[in-house]
C-alpha cells in the first residue's frame, strides 16, 4: 500500500542556518507516528513544512503521491492534511462550541453568498456543523466547557480544544504539535486515549511532535528521531529505546562517557 505521506529529502535553510537537512521517511495510512528530538532539533520546522506553513528549500512532501510542498496552508488543509499548533492557538473570544463550528469551514457545501442569504443548503450546513461540533465535544469529553469562552480555559483544555478544531476540519492526516505539553499525568493519559480513538474510530492518520517520552512510547506505532536537523533513527518504540544513537543524542556523549 502506498504510504499516505512521503517525506522526501526535506531540507530547510534560513540563510546560512540549516534547520532541516535531507530528512526522509514515510507515514502509513492509519498509523500514529511521533517525531521526537532534543529542543531545537528541527521538529517544529518539519511540521510546518509538511503543513506548508513554511516553504521547503529542497525536497518535497507527497500526500497520496501528490506533492503538497510550497502550497498555501489552506490548500493543504483542503486536501486533508491539517495541523494543530504548539502555542495555545485558538479563537480566544469565541466559545468552545463556536471555535469548533467555525472550524467546519472545509465541510460547507453552501457558498458564502448562500450563507448570507440563508439558503436551504446553508441552513442544512449550519445544522450539520452544530451536530458535528457536539459530537466532537462529546468525543473529547469537553461537555462541561462547551459554552465556555476559550480565553477562560486552562492549558489542558486549550490543547484539547486545539485538537477539536483540527478534528472539525475532517482531516485525513492530523499533525499534532506537542499535544501533551502543559498537561498533568491524568490529562495526558486522557489525551493519549483520545488520540488513539481518533485513529481507531475515525481512521485519522496521526503524526505528532512531543517531548513527553512516556506518552510518546505509549501512543506511537513508530517513532522518528531528529537531532540537529537530521534524522538519526526510525522504528518502533522498543527499537528507539534501545538505539545507541538516540540515547547519545538525548543524554549527550559526554554524559554517556562518564557512565550516565
Amino acid at each position: 500500500m502506498m504510504p499516505i505521506l512521503q517525506i522526501k529529502n526535506l531540507t530547510k535553510r534560513y540563510g546560512g542556518l540549516t534547520a532541516n537537512n535531507d530528512i526522509s521517511f514515510d507515514v502509513a495510512e492509519g498509523e500514529i507516528l511521533s517525531v521526537i528530538g532534543p529542543n531545537g532539533a528541527g521538529k517544529s520546522t518539519l511540521f510546518k513544512q509538511i503543513a506548508s506553513f513554511v516553504s521547503v528549500t529542497s525536497g518535497e512532501v507527497l500526500f497520496r503521491g501528490k506533492t503538497i510542498s510550497n502550497l498555501a496552508p489552506h490548500v493543504v488543509a483542503r486536501m486533508g492534511v491539517v495541523r494543530t499548533f504548539q502555542e495555545t492557538t485558538i479563537f480566544k473570544s469565541m466559545t468552545v462550541r463556536e471555535n469548533i463550528i467555525v472550524a467546519h469551514h472545509l465541510r460547507s457545501k453552501a457558498s458564502l453568498l448562500g450563507f448570507f442569504l440563508g439558503s436551504k443548503l446553508a441552513r442544512a450546513d449550519e445544522a450539520a456543523f452544530g451536530k458535528s461540533a457536539d459530537d466532537i465535544v462529546d468525543f473529547l469529553g469537553l461537555e462541561a466547557i462547551r459554552n465556555e469562552l476559550a480565553s477562560n480555559l486552562p492549558q489542558g483544555h486549550l490543547r484539547a480544544l486545539g485538537m477539536a478544531i483540527g478534528l472539525a476540519t475532517g482531516p485525513t492526516v492530523l499533525l499534532l504539535d506537542e499535544p501533551f505539553a502543559g498537561m498533568n499525568h491524568d490529562e495526558t493519559m486522557k489525551m493519549v486515549a483520545s488520540v488513539r480513538r481518533l485513529r481507531d474510530e475515525r481512521g485519522v492518520t496521526v503524526m505528532l511532535v512531543e517531548h513527553d517520552m512516556p506518552a510518546v512510547m505509549k501512543i506511537s506505532d513508530r517513532i522518528v528521531v531528529i537531532n540537529f536537523g537530521e534524522k538519526i533513527a526510525e522504528g518502533t518504540p522498543a527499537e528507539i529505546q534501545a538505539n545507541p544513537r538516540v540515547i547519545e543524542a538525548y543524554l549527550g556523549s559526554e554524559d554517556a562517557a562518564i557512565g550516565m
Binding site: 498555501a72 489552506h74 499548533f85 492557538t89 479563537f91 480566544k92 473570544s93 469551514h105 472545509l106 483540527g166
Partner: peptide, 11 residues
C-alpha cells in the same frame, strides 16, 4: 482572532 489558525482550518 488568529490568521494562522484560520488558514490551518482551510480558510
Amino acid at each position: 482572532q488568529n490568521e494562522e489558525l484560520a488558514s490551518s482550518i482551510g480558510v
